[in-house]
Amino acid sequence: MGEIKWMQDRVYGLMVHYLSHIMPKEGEKRQSWDEMTATFPIQQFCDAVADSGAGWVIFPLGQNTGYYCSENAVLEQYWPGKCSQRDLMLELAEALSERDIKLIVYLPSEVDAAPEEERKALGWEQDSHDKSVFMERYMGIIRYWSQKFGKLVSGWWFDGCYNAGEKTFTRTHSWDNTRFDYLRWQMAARDGNPDAVIAMCPGAEDMRYVFRDQDYLAGEANTLNHLNEGPLIDGMQWHCLVWLDCFWMHGKEPGEIVPPRFSDQEVTDFALQCQQQKGAITWNVGIYEDGVMAEKTLEQIREVKKNIENSRITG
């Protein structure tokens, strides 16, 4: 597909790991997944995104917890009762669209770390290498969501696209990227929107493409040391996803999310360099059980917004 103009123009987006086990700001965690999603403050969340200057949001449909935030009839056939009663993702997509903010949905490309019941239901362990049973079922699940969301979803970010033998945290080490038929993933994810862009992530600090045909670099990073240092394969879009406060999610214990770990100047400099090189950034921001993002981190991103706007005026 080549460069993605809307990513370049908007410069940065936000990601949150809103999952069933994230913690509250204070008090004990008590809410079930349905209680959490039922009270998620969509308008407040979208207002905060808009105020931050973010051009897109990466939001998880689910990630190895056994719970998903959007109805899916195909998933229900295999593993019933795991989709939230409220279709949070659909409502979020509609609210972001009203504000002209793009939505990229997040899903793992595997369920190796998911509950045993889910692994069995989706056929993950029925074949050790090519994962053909899992792929057949998972493609149907992705296609259902893609058809439902249509053009409300502008992209997909698939995690876990790595060779398991290289990762010490996997349960088994017999599967690798030969399990992918990328065209099938592309067809399923784009069934509802042929213009949706796709990234597949080979792991943290690995700034490589998994497939030549994917649209943008997943770019999962732990630092601000990564910049586009030259032309990419077929001119595909350079992109970096980096966490600013808690390590991806607020999942250890209740309490206030830690402050941003980089200075405003460091984050601004990185954003401006990426902008100059036609790159794109997604800032991962901590989020509480009640759906409220870390305010100190949002303050920093608003400062970056101001600095980028000033650079455009003076530049």
Results as ranks from 00 to 15, higher is better:
3 E>K: 15
4 I>T: 04
4 I>W: 01
7 M>T: 02
15 M>N: 10
19 L>W: 08
20 S>V: 15
21 H>N: 15
22 I>P: 05
30 R>N: 12
39 T>G: 09
40 F>A: 00
42 I>W: 02
44 Q>N: 08
45 F>N: 13
46 C>S: 06
46 C>L: 02
50 A>Y: 09
53 G>W: 02
54 A>Q: 07
59 F>A: 04
64 N>W: 15
66 G>S: 05
81 G>M: 07
83 C>R: 14
85 Q>E: 14
89 M>I: 03
91 E>G: 00
91 E>M: 00
92 L>I: 00
95 A>N: 02
102 K>E: 12
104 I>A: 04
105 V>E: 02
108 P>V: 14
108 P>I: 15
110 E>C: 14
110 E>L: 11
111 V>P: 09
114 A>Q: 11
115 P>I: 04
123 G>Y: 06
123 G>S: 02
125 E>M: 14
125 E>N: 15
132 S>V: 10
132 S>D: 06
132 S>I: 08
135 M>T: 08
136 E>F: 09
138 Y>Q: 09
141 I>E: 07
142 I>F: 01
143 R>T: 13
145 W>L: 12
147 Q>D: 08
149 F>M: 13
153 V>P: 02
155 G>P: 06
156 W>V: 03
157 W>I: 01
162 Y>C: 04
164 A>Y: 08
169 F>C: 09
172 T>D: 05
174 S>E: 11
174 S>I: 10
176 D>C: 00
179 R>Y: 01
179 R>A: 03
180 F>C: 03
183 L>C: 03
186 Q>S: 12
187 M>K: 15
190 R>S: 02
192 G>T: 09
193 N>I: 12
193 N>D: 10
194 P>M: 12
195 D>R: 15
202 P>F: 00
213 D>Q: 12
215 D>L: 01
216 Y>I: 00
224 L>V: 05
226 H>G: 00
228 N>H: 06
230 G>N: 00
231 P>N: 10
246 C>V: 15
248 W>Q: 13
250 H>T: 13
254 P>G: 02
259 P>W: 03
264 D>L: 04
267 V>A: 11
275 Q>L: 15
277 Q>Y: 10
281 I>F: 14
286 G>H: 06
290 D>V: 05
290 D>E: 06
290 D>P: 07
292 V>C: 06
297 T>N: 09
297 T>E: 10
300 Q>M: 08
302 R>H: 05
302 R>A: 04
303 E>P: 01
305 K>S: 07
305 K>D: 14
308 I>W: 12
310 N>V: 02
312 R>Q: 12
314 T>G: 05
